[in-house]
């Protein structure tokens, strides 16, 4: 039986039958318990290792279920789908650059909170020869 036989059609707008919502909610609930169960498993790689990516992957799956069924993108026109997927595209751009930065920069000093215990060594206040620029130090009022 095709999907269109399940539902009424309002001016080309598909009305999603309630059973889809129920099934979708059950799937999301299962994924939620899977998230909690996965957090109890010791994955390789530590805090930011495999377990972190598993949690993110499950969250992305849950979000996809909400967007496609609850928000009805699955039954929308191709143009609306492009705009909905565009949100993901913008987020990928947003996350990619900071991730590259995290992966490449060696910012042990010079970032907020990083100079605790290393006072006076902050590279933001040093010249090219690693000499401390006294004038650049913030003045204590």
């Amino acid at each position: 039986m095709s999907e269109n036989e399940h539902a009424d059609d309002h001016a080309g707008h598909f009305i999603v039958p309630p059973k889809y919502y129920i099934i979708n909610a059950v799937v999301i609930a299962i994924l939620m318990f899977l998230t909690i169960a996965a957090s109890e498993v010791t994955f390789p790689g530590g805090v930011n290792g495999v377990g972190y990516w598993v949690a993110l992957l499950i969250a992305i799956l849950k979000a996809a279920c909400i967007v496609s069924i609850f928000m009805g993108v699955k039954w929308n026109t191709p143009l609306v789908k492009v705009f909905a997927l565009g949100v993901v595209g913008w987020l990928i751009i947003l996350f990619t650059f900071p991730m590259i930065d995290i992966a490449s920069a060696k910012w042990e000093l010079g970032t907020p909170y990083s100079d605790i215990g290393h006072e006076g060594e902050n590279t933001l206040f040093m010249d090219d020869d690693a000499e401390l620029l006294v004038d650049a130090e913030p003045k204590a009022d």
Binding site: N48, T77, F83, V87, W90, P98, S114
Partner: peptide, 29 residues
């Protein structure tokens, strides 16, 4: 529909910025 998705896109970017800060400090500490 397209208008609504554009609104949601800017909302997603707003929370995306917060998540970026989260990811940065989580990887750092």
């Amino acid at each position: 529909h397209i208008g609504m998705w554009l609104f949601l896109a800017q909302e997603a970017m707003f929370f995306g910025g917060l998540l970026c800060a989260y990811f940065y400090y989580r990887f750092k500490y």
